[in-house]
Amino acid sequence: MKGFEPKIIGFLCNWCSYEGADAAGRARKAYPANLRVLRVMCSGRVDPQFILEAFKEGADGVMILGCHPGDCHYKEGNLQTLKRYYVLKRVLSTLGIEEDRLRLDWISAGEGDKFVQVVSEMTERMRQLGPLPR
């Protein structure tokens, strides 16, 4: 699998995680180019259909990044995401999509470093897993 570069879609909430990604940029912190970001107002907007579409369209991994629990700009949208994530993970495993290909994490506006770390980890893990078979 040497030389394989995964494609990763990241759904980032507008208020925390997208800010965190921008913060990493402002600090000129390099991270793997594999991530493609899609901004949503709240991680709660992430319909499981979007995740399946991303896998169908060629994503090898999908990340949902939201505000930390308790810090959601919309109070509890991220908790709805958390619940959906657990249910969807079970569905994905029946569809032959390894557990690690979907990752949910919380990144605040100030956590540029954590953003870089999460993206790097995800990219490395996807390199190990190889392309999603289609």
């Binding site: 259909q49 995740i51 969807l88």
Partner: peptide, 21 residues
Amino acid sequence: VRDQGAKSSSFLASIIDVTDK
């Protein structure tokens, strides 16, 4: 709706009254 299963998983998750992992 493009995927009945995805939507079903989404609505069922929504009515779970627990957020402790």
